[in-house]
């Protein structure tokens, strides 16, 4: 089985979010970038397929040269090779178009992406990609098994879960649950050494338009002070929730 894992390169979850150039650009100053958490689960699941079922694992990112450390990290975790499509990821559709080209040319059976990137929270790349290459698609995937050409997946739905069966080629939008948190693979020394020798191919992008454009940003209005209520006077809390906030 040939597996492609889509990796988006995002600010670490503790990052303070700031903007520059008149609030038109995300300020990357001092921001540490990591593999998108949802993609980490997918990558570890891909490694499981590699170890237990003999799959090959390629990781791909659409991004400029500054994303290479993130791809190297994925190689250190155990991916066999990496592809970077050398372009600024302007919107979800543009990225999906680039990934569709990589996916078609590589003839992958299984493409694992994340439910959403924690930067723009688009949640659109995997579904658009599946649609563009006419593959099956399972979103919010929390469990995935593949036997031959058949896949069984569990998907999280509002208020529960749903088990589905489908066929390869398949794209999944994965998240926590695909593997357990404690089983997440982290690079070890040997992996880091080996990653240096693995192939990282840089491809030039296909011509494709963007359909949306992030024009500016705004930070949420600062919050007022918290109103403290004494634990001995919970009636006051109920009163505030009822009469002031009007939520009960």
């Amino acid at each position: 089985m040939k597996i492609l894992v889509c990796i988006s390169h995002v600010p670490d979850t503790t990052s303070k979010i700031n903007f520059t150039d008149g609030d038109s650009t995300f300020d990357t100053n001092g921001v540490q970038f990591v593999i998108n958490p949802n993609d980490e689960f997918g990558l570890t699941r891909a490694m499981w397929f590699k170890e237990k079922q003999g799959a090959s694992v390629t990781v791909v990112n659409v991004g400029e040269a500054d994303t290479e450390p993130t791809l190297r990290k994925a190689l250190a975790i155990g991916a066999d090779e990496a592809i970077r499509v050398n372009a600024h990821p302007t919107d979800g559709f543009f990225v999906a178009r680039q990934l569709a080209k990589v996916a078609k040319d590589g003839g992958y059976d299984l493409i694992i992406a994340g439910r959403e990137s924690i930067d723009y929270n688009g949640g659109m790349v995997p579904g658009m990609l599946a649609s563009l290459i006419d593959a099956n698609f399972v979103n919010t995937c929390i469990s995935l098994e593949v036997e031959g050409n058949e896949a069984t997946a569990i998907r999280e739905i509002d208020g529960g879960k749903e088990t589905v069966k489908t066929k390869l080629p398949l794209v999944v939008g994965g998240q926590k649950g695909l593997v357990e948190e404690k089983d997440l693979k982290i690079p070890n020394m040997r992996g880091i050494m080996m990653a240096r020798k693995k192939q990282l191919t840089v491809l030039e992008p296909e011509a494709a338009e963007s359909r949306t454009k992030a024009v500016s940003f705004e930070k949420p209005a600062p919050k007022g002070e918290v109103k403290l209520v004494s634990p001995d006077n919970l009636d006051e809390l109920i009163d505030l929730l009822h009469n002031e906030a009007k939520v009960i």
Partner: peptide, 22 residues
């Protein structure tokens, strides 16, 4: 909803639409 977010990207491709979630 989880279902709407599941179908929207596919719908965006079918309609050649730009999609702005959230």
């Amino acid at each position: 909803s989880a279902n709407a977010k599941y179908l929207a990207p596919e719908l965006a491709i079918k309609l050649e639409a730009g999609y702005a979630p959230n």
